Computed example of a mutant assay.
Amino acid sequence: MEKRICIVTTTRADWGLLMPLARRLAAEPAVRLQLVASNMHLMPEFGMTVNEITDAGFTVDERVEMAVAGDDEASRVRAMAMCLGGMAGAFERLRPDCVVLLGDRYEMLAVASAAAVMRLPIVHIAGGEVSEGAVDDSIRHAITKLSTLHLTATEAYRRRVIQMGEAPDTVVNTGAIGVWNAFNIKPLDRNALEDFLDLRLDGDIAVVTYHPATNDSSASPAEQTSALLEALDSFPALKCVITYPNNDAGGASIIPLLKSYAERNRDRVRLFQSLGMLRYHSLLRHASVVIGNSSSGIVEVPSAGIPTVEIGIRQRGRISAPSVIHCGSSASDIAEAITEALSPKMRALAGLRQNPYYKAGTLDIMIYSIMALADSLPAQPKHFHDL
């Protein structure tokens, strides 16, 4: 009997990770894939990235709007309420057999809450991780407790999910899907990528993404971004491809600073709302360093063989490869870390591609685990697993 498996995606980041999984599920004879797009995917100011989904040949079955005015925490709560109601309607119409979610963003808590109350089994990807500098950390653990099947990126994260009371046979270490992507995506031709970027891919190139650290009260997102840009000024020969932040509280204050910086440095800086997964991974093959505070710098970039400068506390607590340099948020700290990243010693270390998030056969393990859950439905009530 055909199973309706629904993937919910809300940002360019999670879709970039989920797309290969979606394609494989769509190819399964016993699966009817459903896609729900929400949040940043539907916002023109962030590139209207729902078009990347449809351009890749997928059908978006439901679109759940959640745009509200404001750039503070209260506005995000109101957006969550809007998402919660919209997801109830989407799930009511689609009647999925299970729902697949990735990560830890605030809107995903609304998605998971709607699914749990409607008794829809949840497959949660990337649970058990720690990122102390963002409110996402608590949200991730909350989603874990609402979920039926857990696909973790390392064995340590698997143990942590079990420690939270989840039955061991429902927690599977798959490795990180982003690492699978890094090894399996065919990159764009260099000339085509240069044409899109309007930038020659020679010399040292930095890929830069900086998000608000929502649990960091030491300085505002705008102040921390200003320090990053000041540090980049110390490297006038370093070409920079910068992407927009996410729409967490404070994110809107970062964008004008990035626009102004790109305008002042047209000879070496390019700014994009979104690169998309293919361009991002293609660019990593020509980059010298990734700079910012995105989880991608920790999880995926080590497999590209280049160093990461991970700024501030946003990702504090994540397991990291030797090629990830953690630094403070001041301009001097960031500049010192960039200097280290560009050194021959660190380039050689990064070239070893050591990555704790790598596991052979990640996508196959995910598909097998999800299909096993689908075959066992309806799911039984969960029992708390005592250690």
Rank of each mutant, 00 (worst) to 15 (best):
F196K: 07
F196L: 12
F196W: 10
F196I: 07
L197S: 03
L197F: 03
D198N: 08
D198C: 15
D198Q: 12
D198L: 10
L199M: 10
L199T: 07
L199N: 05
R200Y: 14
R200H: 15
R200Q: 12
L201Q: 03
L201E: 06
L201M: 10
D202G: 14
D202N: 13
G203E: 05
G203C: 09
G203M: 07
G203D: 14
D204G: 02
D204S: 08
I205G: 00
A206C: 03
A206Y: 02
A206K: 00
A206E: 01
A206W: 00
V207G: 00
V207R: 01
V207N: 02
V207H: 00
V207D: 02
V208Q: 01
T209M: 04
T209D: 01
T209P: 05
T209I: 05
Y210P: 05
H211C: 14
H211T: 08
H211I: 10
H211Q: 13
P212M: 01
A213T: 01
A213E: 05
T214E: 01
N215Q: 07
N215G: 08
D216G: 03
D216A: 05
S218G: 11
S218P: 03
A219G: 12
A219D: 14
A219V: 06
A219N: 08
A219E: 12
S220F: 09
P221Y: 09
P221T: 08
A222E: 15
A222I: 07
A222L: 08
E223M: 13
E223T: 13
E223D: 12
E223Y: 11
Q224K: 12
Q224Y: 02
Q224I: 02
Q224R: 14
Q224N: 10
Q224H: 10
T225K: 00
T225E: 00
S226N: 07
S226E: 15
A227D: 15
A227T: 12
A227G: 12
A227F: 14
L228Y: 05
L228T: 04
L228C: 05
L229C: 07
L229H: 01
L229D: 00
L229I: 04
E230K: 11
E230C: 09
E230D: 10
E230Q: 11
A231H: 02
A231I: 04
A231F: 03
L232M: 08
D233W: 07
D233V: 11
D233C: 15
D233T: 08
S234I: 06
S234R: 09
S234H: 14
S234N: 11
S234C: 10
F235A: 04
P236W: 13
P236V: 14
P236T: 04
P236A: 06
A237P: 03
A237C: 13
A237I: 11
A237E: 14
L238R: 06
L238C: 14
L238G: 13
L238Y: 08
K239R: 08
K239P: 00
K239C: 01
C240Y: 15
V241T: 05
I242P: 05
I242R: 13
I242K: 09
I242S: 15
